[in-house]
Design a protein around this nucleic acid. Structure first.
Lengths: 400, 400
DNA sequence: CCAATTTAATTTGCTTTTCGAATTTAAGTT
DNA sequence: AACTTAAATTCGAAAAGCAAATTAAATTGG
């Protein structure tokens, strides 16, 4: 907690503020950070000299009088660094390349063998994907200042340690280190659920909120928490296991081996399992198609399908209510790509949740459904890496 | 976020550090805070001048060589301020008076009418209790620098607002203000569950841990969270409602009006209700006695009693596992006074919990049972007030 | 069109705060 | 008594930030 890095500290603070607020004039920076105008001028001068930020002409805004010396907006200099983000999934790796200001450069997707891989093998695939990504934009892999990597499973982000992942054939792999060596670039590893929260924080609703929960439903149920404007990770790097929260004593069997997990009621495989076991529905198609079949049947009035879907919704509402009771967030974001799960997001579910939280004479937290494209994960990973690259850039900025 | 309060900031930081670490030599302060030795000398000189801290002779310790100039320990000056803490319960108010260094001065208990009171009425009772407390120690009520007040119910501590409490006859009472006016002393209001966490943080295991959860089981089930060395409150001031976490869809009726709350399975009234409704046990005695009857019967092998107690334990384990899955704390503290609930704390319950959390190759969080005396609440309230008094003392410290 | 006005940004000079290095202090050791 | 060790203090210098004054760039009004 050393003092004595004050200069670096104020540079970091202002760079973050500029990154967070987009183009912003100096006077607003002074206002929001509490730093005096004089200091803002001198610190931003340093950042400008280091080409981390740049002045941009201000388009006239109607909400302020146009008298007086016009404000000059500052923004992060896009060309200062390249940042990559990628997400390893079942059978492919999706990657994005972005500039230092978070703008999109290009993206890429490459197939990998399904099933568990050795860490070296996966690292090689990632390296090749990254090279292809860089090449697409006319760059070299080593031009990249930082790479964020998202992995399903249980990951200790601070130590780059993968406790367990469906993508790796071993437990407790120091995959961060492995990647660092294979890629020759700074690597920041994280759990994929946290990445969605990170994407939301950096590019989404984090612009206006500082305490929220992000729930994702894909094949599993994931969660990320933002408390006080930053991602919360547990002490062992494996918090936020919302999907394995228990909603029923000795309940349905989950693929994690335990019983009664929320995931065992609302995930795709759970819906299919239920619907077919009860009979009445024959589901031999792949999971994702089977889910739509069930949802359609439920809407069409099929009683079996309805029971299954309704119960999933109720369980989901219950889990959500528990979260709200414990955290009291200002906002809950339901984020996802596959809106085949929109039965869970239905207003009735949200209403059910509201009825299950402790009632006080203050409005319940807002619930927002946010649909993302399939690059969301990779962008979140890049956003995660971006923070580190920002900090590193500020630290290596030499004095005048 | 203003800079420009650096002096106050470093004074505050060092005072906190001294309070937290007990008697500590300057060189350790420099080490732990990252502030240079020179600055530590000058800032602690200010604190000494303001009589907020004092030097104490150091008893020789074996773990370090005795060569060189001996270290001089610093500790918080007990006589600098008086702080009171109190907890309003069903039929009484319990109060403690402590010095600025957290040492005990005296305590007091006074009866109040049972049932809901008007805020003015309750405030008057608190005033009288506080006067009696001060008198016991040969002081005047107005000698007290700050009073922490704990209330059951839903409380927004930051605004001194009571959304709802079993002690008050109205909802949404700005009870902090009311007390402030009635007592003529700075008042800091909080939810009683948070106070236990506060007591633990200040006087208990918080000395060695910075991320933990405290669960209390009395008549209800309460919870406090310490994240990053400080109490976490939700955004509406009503987080941590662990007792009303849902553990069963459409389950047992809770006194909050909803169904399936954890409390509806593990609280005293829930045990009694179950045991008598199933029949086989006639329980006409008051709740607390009835509970011991049930527990004894369960131990004696009575099947009805056993079912009831076992289910309570399972539900509790499930709720606990959910907390751990979500937060991943380093420590879970089960704190309480009435060890009549020790069936919930039993090793088998904790074992059950361990089996229900996500398994990784890292030890599960420690679970510690911590028995407190009945002044725990009041001491927590005082600890809460103490932080404010410390800050105020630092802020009003004039320069040399 | 130019002076007055308005607002933003910068410069200047000063204060506050902190630190590093040297020094002093208080012990033990030889 | 001289030397060693380690903590605490002193002192001068440097860093960082701020307030006030100044400069800059626009609009408005006469």
């Amino acid at each position: 907690m050393a003092f004595g890095h004050q200069k670096v500290e104020s540079r970091r603070l202002l760079l973050r503020e500029i990154a967070h607020r987009g183009p912003v004039p100096r006077i607003d920076l002074a206002e929001h950070t509490g730093i005096s105008r004089a200091t803002v001028t001198s610190v931003t001068a340093d950042l400008l000299r280091g080409r981390l930020i740049e002045e941009v002409p201000r388009e006239s805004r109607n909400d302020e009088s146009a008298r007086g010396r016009p404000r000059v907006d500052l923004k992060v200099a896009g060309d200062a660094h390249l940042i990559a983000g990628l997400k390893v999934s079942d059978r492919s790796i999706s990657l994005v390349l972005m500039r230092f200001d978070g703008t999109h450069v290009t993206d890429h997707e490459c197939a990998i063998p399904t099933g568990r891989l050795t860490s070296d093998n996966l690292a090689t695939h990632i390296r090749d994907g990254l090279s292809a990504l860089a090449e697409k934009a006319g760059h070299n892999r080593t031009d990249i200042s930082g790479v964020g990597v998202g992995l399903a499973g249980v990951v200790d982000a601070d130590h780059g340690l993968v406790y367990w992942s469906p993508s790796l054939d071993q437990r407790n792999v120091p995959f961060g280190e492995v990647l660092r060596e294979t890629l020759g670039v700074a690597v920041y590893l994280d759990n994929d659920a946290n990445l969605v929260a990170m994407a939301e924080l950096t590019f989404g609703l984090g612009k206006s909120h500082s305490d929220f929960i992000v729930i994702t439903i894909e094949s599993g149920v994931g969660m990320g928490m933002v408390l006080g404007g930053q991602l919360y990770r547990g002490t062992r790097g494996c918090g936020a296991e919302f999907g394995h929260t228990k909603v029923h004593l000795d309940g349905a069997l989950c693929r994690c081996g335990q019983r009664g997990c929320l995931e065992a009621y609302v995930a795709d495989y759970a819906l299919v399992r239920e619907a077919s076991s009860v009979g009445g529905m024959s589901l031999t198609t792949p999971t994702s198609q089977a889910v739509s079949t069930i949802l359609k049947a439920a809407k069409g009035g099929d009683p079996t399908a309805r029971t299954v879907v309704e119960r999933a919704g109720k369980m989901f509402a219950m889990g959500l209510a528990n979260l709200v009771n414990i955290f009291d967030p200002e906002l809950v974001i339901l984020a996802g790509e596959q809106m085949q799960f929109d039965h869970l997001y239905a207003d009735t579910v949200i209403e059910e949740m509201r009825k299950s939280i402790v009632e006080i004479d203050k409005p319940a937290p807002e619930v927002i459904v946010h649909k993302w494209d399939n690059l969301m994960w990779a962008r979140g990973a890049a956003a995660y890496a971006l923070e580190f690259v920002q900090d590193a850039a500020v630290e290596t900025l030499e004095d005048a």
